[in-house]
């Protein structure tokens, strides 16, 4: 628990800095408003409170964002088009589907790579090169393209998430499946183990820590992929759409609320993978 205090201190500092910046950045517009309303002698405390309560602030104060999140999730019905829970669910389902695809593809590729020399040599360089392509930057276009073929809804977004999340899984799993040492492989040979048994009883368990480390990275970028992929289709819904409409209408509070929800989702997803990791570790008898 020695980490709680420092983290809280930093968070508090960020919060204070944020409120100060909100005053600073919203001040010009508030001054204009006050001059129009013929308010000349505004004490600083009142002025600060005014800057923290604007309708479309340049930088909304944290409590405005929290209020917006509350209003847009708990206070609204789930089916409402303005509910962030509704949009969050759309993004979450695309993220999870893409993450599942990506992890499966990554594991399959890794298995092919460690068992076959030719696929190692031909695939590995291109897998690495595939990630230098800014696919995220063309994600909205890919979604439009797939929509023209008839793939709409969840799947195109999930494909973007898959493209992003398979990479850490391949790299991690190749490392992990190769992590058993020669002496362990030799032992399996003395047991006359089949390749299938070597895989399931030695390589696969040995790769588990690598798989979970990769999945933590993978699920975070799956979410990013899903959010960005939503930017193209304003009618489809999702957190990305809230970002887009918020930016068109100058609804900064709405943008920040969507961002916070996305951040919260990312944190929860990574934490879930982390607890799955601990569970598996305990089942496999690892020492904590």
């Amino acid at each position: 628990m020695t980490r709680i205090l420092p983290v809280l201190t930093i968070l508090l500092a960020i919060l204070l800095f944020w409120y100060a910046m909100a005053v600073h950045m919203n001040a010009p517009w508030q001054t204009t408003l006050n001059t129009r309303a013929d308010l000349t002698e505004v004490p600083f405390t009142t002025f600060a409170q005014q800057t923290w309560a604007q309708d479309k602030p340049v930088l909304p104060a944290p409590h405005q964002v929290i209020t917006e999140i509350w209003n847009a999730t708990v206070a609204l019905e789930l089916s409402s088009k303005r509910s962030l829970a509704y949009h969050g669910w759309i993004t979450l389902s695309a993220t999870l589907l893409g993450f599942a695809f990506g992890t499966a593809l990554g594991v399959l590729l890794a298995v092919a790579i460690i068992h076959n020399d030719a696929s190692d040599r031909s695939l590995m360089p291109w897998i690495i090169a595939s990630q230098t392509i800014p696919i995220l930057a063309v994600a909205p276009m890919v979604v439009v393209g797939l929509g023209a073929v008839g793939l709409t809804g969840l799947v195109p977004k999930a494909l973007i998430s898959m493209y992003l999340s398979f990479f850490p899984v391949v790299v991690g799993m190749v490392k992990g499946l190769r992590s058993p040492e020669n002496i362990q492989l030799d032992l399996m040979r003395t047991y006359d183990a089949s390749p299938w048994q070597v895989f399931w009883k030695l390589r696969w368990p040995a790769a588990m820590p690598f798989l979970f480390a990769s999945m933590k990275v993978g699920i975070a970028i799956s979410l990013i992929g899903a959010v960005v992929a939503e930017l193209s289709n304003a009618s489809g819904g999702g957190l990305g759409v809230r970002l887009l409409t918020g930016s068109y209408n100058g609804q900064t509070v709405q943008i920040w609320a969507a961002l916070f929800i996305a951040a919260g989702l990312a944190a929860i997803l990574v934490a879930l993978v982390g607890s799955a990791e601990r569970l598996v570790n305990r089942r496999m008898g690892a020492r904590a």
Binding site: L136, K216, V217, A220, L223, I224, V227, V228, L239, G240, L243, L244, G246, S247, T252, I255, W256, A258, L259, A262, A263, A266, A267, V270
Partner: peptide, 11 residues
């Protein structure tokens, strides 16, 4: 680092 920071683009 794990957050979708790219979302601040409209801001």
């Amino acid at each position: 680092s794990a957050l979708p920071i790219i979302g601040i683009a409209p801001i």
